[in-house]
Nucleic acid binder design. Structure first.
Length: 806
RNA sequence: GUCGGAGUGGCGGAAUAGGCAGACGCGCUAGCUUGAGGGGCUAGUGCCCGCAAGGGCGUGGGGGUUCAAGUCCCCCCUCCGACACCA
């Protein structure tokens, strides 16, 4: 009797071997073809949870699989180590965020290693490492120099209770402060932005070339929100002012019955008549004070609020004056902040018109029996002079734009929903923005020789949540790099998305002290061949990282040809429990610890692969423990099969059958790996194992099983391979199927009568149609059902099926 | 509201090109192994009728195309996710 499988001992042994032998360390001059596998680097929140386990199971499987295909696989690990939780802990307990964070990192590292996930730990990066900060700050300064970073006033979340600015994450969904519960207000402050909008079109176009999940691409396209239309000017009666509006429906311009400008519009007070002045000022103040609460609290179509300015704009299409309103449904941040309102063809305008008693003029004839309100569909133009009768909207739009351009009052225009990236955070635990504010010279860059700007250690965290940097004289007081006069340091830090927008480049060249990374190193590995992470990063992180890659190339830091960072993206499903996401904040976290201590890492990895398609959410249930036990049972069966074939599965009576089955499983499982169909790959290997128990095992069959299982269950397969061959399984080449051995000796042919299965026949896979039909008709079951009558029709699909219609 | 995804046994899920629905596993049932342990092995397990042979029904609901539909087309229902006044 062979010794039982001791998962603990075997897993410990191999984890130590992989680490001490540096099995998965790769150098930049490795001669093998490069392959870059990357899991989104984590925030170090403590020991790994099941979401991490799932993520790193897929990542590690690919690392080992690609290695067995002869690639030099770059598989680095790092930490997104700036962020709010450490700062909140500091406010609560007084422990410095760096100390707090650095205690969490080994906890996560440890559980990752115990899963058997392998990385080139020499390349580890941490966002809060001063060397990493130096690079992040260098990048910021280069982007600023190139005009891709700028400072502007922008509304921030202001908590009147805490007397401080809040990050978006600190504002609850209902618009209140998550610490004091006060209603958060908007205030204008000087903030830093990255000009991501300069890349809107390229970010949109380049999506087409990426092997990403379609739904992620759709989300990004919607986020960028390209829309084509026209911009034109209107005279404001009795003034010199001209009002510019953007519309996607210039073809409906004859139906404009009023115009609307945003409450923040610079002309708002300029054009307001004296009689309306008080009402308008009142309305503007009201909108400015209004927090997001009111907007978020109401369900369904929002009530539109506005006020008449007393002014009239002239519709250039027909020369008619229309009243100009202020309304909160028009946003200053999109288009020109002003619109022509056409209630007949736009539901929002319709709602406002009804609320304020404004007229509706249809310019598109709705279909017979139209019951709705605004009609945005197709139909013949009416009430539109020279557009009348045109049915095709595209044609009508083109004609309207041509007219605007010919008259010199407007032109074709493309707008994007995408906004510039506000990167300032009024927080301590982030990368400081390397800027000095001089009374004479304004915002001045910190010279690169003085980088990194690092936050001091002797800081006091206030329960109000204010950044301690604002009260730290030693940090705050400095001199202007230009004039040497007294100046103040910028106390805002960068959004942590800045750190994560380029870390994948740093992994290529992690020790570089002169530059964030060298172009040669990046050219060697980038783009990432397989990026793996959660769907929750579908928009922000992935959009920002794409923007950075393009911008870095354009400012000369990145290779000019590298326009996209992630060639292939895979987004794994979440772990759910009782229908909600498993997360620390919900307190329903299940850790891997007890499984690693008992059934072992291989069984847990197998569970994650087997439980369902990788992209689907996983429901963690009472059944999960039993399924993990089932995976462990399968591994024990493999163990006995490999070490004790005489007992478990004596040599087969028909070795040829087993050999053919081995080649078929190679072909099938190899394909399943390529298609990310790991759940069926595990099933295929279980099926194959069952077959070997039943039919008997050969050495070739067992070796095949171990090789195909090696990326999924690395410890047990490594141990078994070493015992059988004295070699390292993950250094073996991936097996290839012999195409001449894929066919079966015989196959089951189904015989249907009127589409219902009535018989099954064992036939040769090479059977020809005539023979198949003859055999089918000769079947006693078929004879019985036909009762002597000739079949009306016989459909033959050899060798799988014959369908007899009668 | 708009966009996207999904509905298959008691459960997780298979079904690559329209061709045996339910692979594999969990659970359950029976038997064997008789040194218990979260042990090992074998067989069975969609539902209904039947002792059986066999028959009928069956992939959210309704229609359609086809010799043949989980898969293709039309309508409807439910659930999940993203965006949510972007002119």
């Amino acid at each position: 009797m062979v010794e039982p499988y001791d998962a603990q001992a075997v897993e410990r042994k191999w984890q130590q071997r992989w680490e001490s032998e540096g099995t998965y360390e790769v150098d930049n001059d490795d001669p093998r073809p490069p392959y870059y596998v990357l899991c989104m680097y984590p925030y170090p929140s403590g020991p790994a949870h099941m979401g991490h386990v799932r993520n790193y199971t897929f990542g590690d499987l690919i690392v080992r699989h690609r290695t067995m295909h002869g690639h030099a696989v770059l598989s680095p690990f790092g930490f997104d180590s700036f962020g709010l939780p450490a700062e909140n802990a500091a406010i609560k307990t007084g422990v410095h965020p760096r100390v707090f964070t650095e205690e969490r990192i080994p906890e996560l590292t440890d559980s990752v290693k115990r899963m058997g996930a392998v990385y080139d730990w020499r390349r580890e990066v941490r966002s809060h490492d001063p060397e990493y900060m130096r690079a992040t700050q260098t990048i910021f300064l280069r982007l600023w120099e190139a005009g891709l970073a700028y400072r502007a006033k922008a509304p921030v979340n202001w908590c009147p209770g805490c007397h401080t600015v809040l990050a978006n994450e600190q504002v609850r969904a209902d618009g209140t402060c998550d610490r004091s519960g006060d209603v958060v207000q908007k205030r204008d402050l000087e903030q830093w932005f990255f000009k991501i909008t300069a890349y809107a079109q390229e970010l949109l176009d380049d999506l087409d070339g990426l092997e990403w999940p379609e739904r992620v691409k759709v989300m990004q396209r919607n986020w960028i929100g390209r829309s084509e239309g026209a911009e034109f000017e209107m005279a404001v009666e009795g003034t010199e002012h001209r009002l510019r509006v953007f519309t996607t429906r210039p073809d409906t311009s004859f139906g404009m019955t009023y115009a609307v400008i945003a409450p923040e519009h610079p002309l708002a007070l300029e054009i307001t008549t004296p009689e309306q002045r008080a009402a308008v000022e009142d309305f503007v103040a009201q909108v400015r004070m209004a927090s997001d609460v009111e907007r978020l609290s109401s369900e369904g179509p929002l009530e539109k609020r506005g006020v008449f300015t007393g002014a009239h704009a002239v519709n250039p299409f027909n020369g008619k004056p229309v009243p100009v309103y202020l309304a909160d449904y028009v946003l200053m941040t999109y288009g020109t902040g002003a619109i022509m309102a056409v209630p007949a063809e736009d539901q929002r305008d319709w709602d406002f018109a009804k609320a304020y008693g404004l007229p509706v003029v249809r310019t598109v004839q709705p279909p017979e029996g139209w019951q709705g309100e605004a009609y945005p569909g197709e139909g013949p133009r009416i009430n539109s002079e020279w557009l009348d009768g045109i049915v095709d909207t595209g044609e009508a739009k083109a004609k309207a734009v041509e007219w605007l351009e010919a008259e010199g009052i407007g032109e074709r225009k493309v707008n994007y929903r995408l906004r510039d990236w506000l990167l300032s955070r009024q927080r301590f635990w982030g990368c400081p923005i390397p800027v000095v504010n001089c009374p004479d010279h304004g915002a001045v860059p910190v010279p690169e020789s003085q980088l990194p700007v690092v936050a001091p250690d002797d800081v006091e965290f206030r329960p109000t949540g204010e950044s301690p940097l604002r009260f730290h004289e030693g940090f705050l007081r400095t001199t202007c790099p230009i004039c040497g006069g007294p100046a103040e340091r910028e106390t805002d830090t960068m959004d942590t998305f800045v750190d994560s927008s380029w870390y994948f480049l740093r992994f290529c060249d992690p020790q570089n002290r002169l530059l964030p990374f060298s172009q040669e190193a990046v050219e060697r590995w980038m783009p990432v061949d397989q990026y793996i992470g959660g769907i929750e990063h579908a928009i922000l992180h992935l959009m920002y990282a794409r923007f950075f890659t393009k911008a870095l190339a354009d400012v000369g830091l990145g290779p000019p040809s590298l326009r996209e960072p992630f060639r292939r993206l895979f987004t794994q499903g979440m772990i759910r429990m009782d229908g909600t996401k498993m997360s620390k904040s919900r307190g329903n976290l299940v850790g891997p610890g007890r499984y690693l201590d008992t059934t072992g890492a291989d069984a847990l990895r197998l569970f994650h692969l087997f439980v369902g398609p990788p992209a689907d959410d996983v429901d963690w249930s009472d059944q999960s423990d039993e399924v993990i036990e089932g995976c462990a049972r399968f591994l024990r069966r493999v163990w006995r099969l490999a070490l004790e074939p005489e007992q478990a599965a004596p040599p087969p009576a028909e070795p040829d059958n087993v050999e053919r089955a081995s080649h078929r499983v190679i072909a099938r499982v190899s394909d399943e790996y390529e298609r990310w169909s790991y759940n069926t790959a595990v099933a295929s290997l279980m099926e194959f194992t069952n077959l070997l128990y039943k039919e008997g095992a050969t050495d070739f069959a067992v070796d095949t099983l171990l090789l195909l299982l090696a990326p999924m269950a690395p410890h047990i397969t490594a141990e078994l391979w070493e015992r059988r061959h004295g070699a390292h399984i993950h250094a073996q080449r991936w097996p290839t199927a012999d195409p001449t051995k894929l066919t079966l000796e015989s196959t089951t042919m189904v015989v249907q009568v009127n589409g219902k299965v009535r018989d099954r026949l064992e036939v040769a896979p090479t059977i020809v149609a005539e023979e198949a039909e003859r055999l089918a008709l000769a079947s006693p079951r078929v004879q019985e059902l036909l009762a002597g009558a000739p079949p009306r029709k016989v459909v033959v699909r050899p060798p799988k099926l014959v369908n007899i219609v009668h």
